[in-house]
Amino acid sequence: MAIDIYSTPLLTAREAARHLRMPESTLDNWLAASKSGDPLVHAVTPERRGWPRVPFVGVIEAYVLRALRDLGMPLADIRKAAEIVRAEFDDPYALASRRIATDGVAVFVRLADDSLVHARDSQGAFREVLDGCLRYIEWSSDGSAKRLRLPQYPSEADVVIDPRFGWGAPVLERNKVKVDDLVALWRAGESIKQVADEYDLTESAVEDVLRLAA
Rank of each mutant, 00 (worst) to 15 (best):
Leu148Cys: 03
Leu148Asp: 04
Leu148Pro: 06
Arg149Trp: 09
Arg149Ile: 12
Leu150Ala: 08
Leu150Ser: 12
Leu150Trp: 03
Leu150His: 05
Pro151Cys: 11
Pro151Trp: 07
Pro151Ser: 06
Gln152Val: 12
Tyr153Ser: 10
Tyr153Leu: 09
Tyr153Thr: 06
Tyr153Asn: 10
Tyr153Val: 06
Tyr153Asp: 04
Pro154Trp: 06
Pro154Ala: 06
Pro154Tyr: 08
Ala157Asn: 13
Ala157Trp: 11
Ala157Met: 06
Asp158His: 09
Val159Asn: 04
Val159Tyr: 06
Val160Asn: 10
Ile161Ser: 11
Ile161His: 07
Pro163Val: 05
Pro163Glu: 09
Pro163Asp: 05
Arg164Asn: 10
Arg164Lys: 10
Arg164Asp: 10
Arg164Pro: 07
Arg164Phe: 12
Phe165Tyr: 08
Phe165Ile: 02
Phe165Asp: 03
Trp167Leu: 12
Trp167Arg: 15
Gly168Val: 05
Gly168Asp: 08
Gly168Lys: 10
Ala169Ile: 12
Pro170Ile: 04
Pro170Asp: 03
Val171Met: 02
Leu172Pro: 03
Leu172Arg: 05
Leu172Phe: 01
Leu172Gly: 00
Arg174Trp: 03
Arg174Glu: 08
Arg174Gln: 10
Asn175Leu: 01
Lys176Met: 05
Lys176Ser: 02
Lys176Asp: 00
Lys176Val: 00
Val177Gln: 00
Val179Leu: 00
Val179Ala: 00
Asp180His: 08
Leu182Cys: 03
Leu182Gly: 03
Leu182Lys: 02
Val183Lys: 05
Ala184Tyr: 03
Ala184Glu: 05
Leu185Arg: 10
Leu185Glu: 09
Leu185Asp: 15
Arg187Ile: 05
Ala188Ser: 13
Ala188Trp: 13
Gly189Asp: 07
Gly189Glu: 08
Gly189Asn: 07
Glu190Cys: 12
Glu190Pro: 13
Ser191Asn: 02
Ser191Ile: 08
Ile192Asp: 05
Gln194Leu: 10
Gln194Arg: 11
Val195Cys: 13
Val195Lys: 12
Ala196Thr: 05
Ala196Asp: 05
Ala196Gln: 04
Ala196Phe: 01
Ala196Lys: 02
Asp197Met: 07
Asp197His: 06
Asp197Asn: 04
Asp200Val: 11
